[in-house]
Simulated scan of single mutants.
Amino acid sequence: MGINSKINIVIAGVGGQGIITLSKIIGDAAVKENVKVLVAETHGLSQRGGSVEVHLRIGDVYAPLVPKGEADILLSMELIEAARNIDYLNQNGIVITSDVILRPPIPGVKLPKKEEIVSEFKRNNIKYYIIPTKDLSEKAGSYLSENMVLLGALYKLANLEKFISIDSIKESIKTMRNPEINLKAFELGSSFITSI
């Protein structure tokens, strides 16, 4: 790791999607390898299906929150949350998002279409990857492993191996419930990126 080597990741989604678990897996793996990692959870309305953000900073970092405009990666469990948090990205930042759109619990809210969100990414020259997390997690054995599908995609796209070995990530995943399913989901997310 170089002197100024760091990566800033903002993870966004809705309460109950496993965002905190995903950040804990990365944090635990980094700690095992003596890599500096700072994690800040902003739960919001996580108990009620509201927005949740986790700021994850790895390497040469000194404050837990990623300032707006400084995230290298915006990782989102939900497409609307990706759009809502886009101002965290730096100029060369990448969006890695699930293709899922969840209906808010408020009746009568008009949902944007996937195409509308994607066209905004394109209009603003944002580099993005949309991952079919629902399909891949069901292929792994449980829709509850969508977060591990995204972790696999993140590991590949963000070059996290510069900071944390894949073995440490897998060891952390093995501490979860249903480790076989979660490991398979991680592999499927990683393979999906390799195939595009």
Results as ranks from 00 to 15, higher is better:
residue 91 Q to G: 14
residue 83 A to L: 14
residue 50 G to V: 03
residue 159 N to H: 14
residue 145 S to N: 09
residue 157 L to W: 12
residue 77 M to C: 14
residue 155 Y to F: 13
residue 130 I to V: 15
residue 76 S to Y: 00
residue 106 I to G: 05
residue 147 N to G: 05
residue 134 K to Q: 10
residue 90 N to T: 08
residue 148 M to R: 01
residue 126 I to C: 13
residue 85 N to P: 08
residue 99 D to F: 04
residue 129 Y to A: 10
residue 106 I to C: 06
residue 51 S to W: 02
residue 111 L to I: 08
residue 80 I to H: 01
residue 131 I to A: 00
residue 111 L to D: 00
residue 123 R to K: 14
residue 91 Q to M: 11
residue 86 I to N: 07
residue 147 N to E: 00
residue 153 A to I: 06
residue 63 A to P: 13
residue 85 N to V: 04
residue 146 E to C: 11
residue 50 G to K: 02
residue 112 P to R: 01
residue 151 L to C: 11
residue 79 L to H: 00
residue 91 Q to I: 11
residue 51 S to A: 14
residue 106 I to Q: 14
residue 144 L to S: 08
residue 155 Y to C: 06
residue 121 F to V: 01
residue 90 N to H: 09
residue 56 L to Q: 07
residue 126 I to S: 12
residue 84 R to E: 02
residue 95 V to F: 00
residue 85 N to F: 04
residue 86 I to P: 12
residue 64 P to N: 13
residue 118 V to A: 08
residue 98 S to V: 01
residue 133 T to A: 13
residue 138 E to M: 13
residue 105 P to V: 03
residue 64 P to T: 08
residue 152 G to L: 07
residue 54 V to S: 03
residue 143 Y to D: 15
residue 120 E to H: 15
residue 73 I to D: 04
residue 71 A to L: 11
residue 97 T to H: 00
residue 130 I to F: 06
residue 93 G to V: 01
residue 130 I to E: 04
residue 80 I to F: 05
residue 156 K to D: 06
residue 80 I to S: 06
residue 117 I to T: 01
residue 114 K to G: 06
residue 135 D to S: 13
residue 63 A to L: 15
residue 49 G to Q: 02
residue 126 I to N: 13
residue 79 L to F: 03
residue 84 R to I: 02
residue 51 S to F: 06
residue 91 Q to T: 13
residue 108 G to H: 10
residue 116 E to M: 11
residue 57 R to Q: 09
residue 107 P to T: 06
residue 102 L to N: 14
residue 138 E to S: 13
residue 66 V to E: 00
residue 52 V to P: 01
residue 67 P to W: 00
residue 121 F to E: 03
residue 152 G to A: 09
residue 56 L to I: 12
residue 49 G to H: 02
residue 154 L to Y: 03
residue 81 E to P: 12
